[in-house]
């Protein structure tokens, strides 16, 4: 049996890579994708605990389904905001989106 900690380790590495990408990349779509990567890491943890947890049952899988749905909605709304912003400011770089900072 694969120990639970190996799944948690994979999820941790994915989360750290996603966090690094979300904080350092300039392209807004890559930032959105990095956020999706972090969502996926959390989903791996939920499904792993549905199998290996202290009170393991199906709730983890169902919660990860809800989380996937919310992530898809978030991606759609984020992309709509991005396209609207591109039309107004003609930039997709997050360090040039500083209208509220000036």
């Amino acid at each position: 049996m694969i120990p639970a900690s190996s799944y948690l380790l994979v999820a941790l590495i994915l989360f750290c890579v996603g966090l690094y990408g979300a904080l350092t990349k300039r392209h807004a779509i890559i930032v959105l994708l990095s956020i999706e990567l972090m969502f996926n890491a959390v989903n791996i943890n939920l499904v792993a605990f549905a199998k290996y947890g202290l009170f393991a049952n199906m709730t983890g899988q169902i919660f990860s389904l809800f989380s996937i749905t919310v992530a898809a909605a978030e991606a759609a709304v984020g992309l709509a905001i991005l396209i609207s912003l591109y039309r107004n400011r003609s930039t997709v770089h997050v360090d040039e989106m500083d209208l509220m900072k000036r």
Binding site: V10, N43, I44, V47, A48, Q61, S64, L65
Partner: peptide, 10 residues
């Protein structure tokens, strides 16, 4: 990985 964890639907 999900299928390996026996969560085929997810």
């Amino acid at each position: 990985l999900f299928i390996l964890l026996e969560a085929e639907f997810v």
